[in-house]
Computed example of a mutant assay.
Amino acid sequence: MSLYVAYVLVGLAIAMPVGAITVEMTKQGLKNGFMHGWAVGLGGMTIDLLLICALYMGLASILAMPIVQIPMWLIGAGFLLFLGFDSIKNADQGITLSGEKVTKSFFSSYRNGLLVAVSPGNLVFWVNVFGVVLANSYDQGEPKNFLIVAAGVLSGILLHDVGLMAIISLTRKAMNRTAIKWLTIAAGVLLLGFACYFMYEFVTAIRVYI
Rank of each mutant, 00 (worst) to 15 (best):
M1K: 06
Y4T: 00
A6I: 03
M16Y: 14
M16S: 11
P17M: 11
V18M: 04
V18I: 13
A20Y: 00
A20W: 01
T26V: 14
G29A: 08
A39P: 01
A39D: 00
I47C: 02
D48N: 08
L49Q: 02
L50C: 13
S61N: 07
Q69E: 11
G78I: 11
F79K: 13
L80V: 03
I88W: 13
K89E: 02
A91Q: 05
Q93L: 11
T96H: 13
G99Q: 07
F106L: 08
S109C: 10
N112W: 08
G113T: 06
G113P: 14
L115A: 06
L115F: 08
P120H: 07
L123H: 11
N128F: 15
N136M: 11
S137D: 03
Y138N: 06
Y138F: 12
N145V: 05
I148T: 13
V149D: 02
A150W: 10
G152Y: 09
G152I: 09
L154Q: 10
I157N: 04
I157W: 01
L164I: 11
A166G: 15
A166L: 06
I167Y: 04
I167W: 14
R172E: 03
K173Y: 00
K173Q: 10
V189S: 05
F198C: 15
F202R: 08
V203F: 14
V203Y: 15
A205M: 10
Y209H: 07
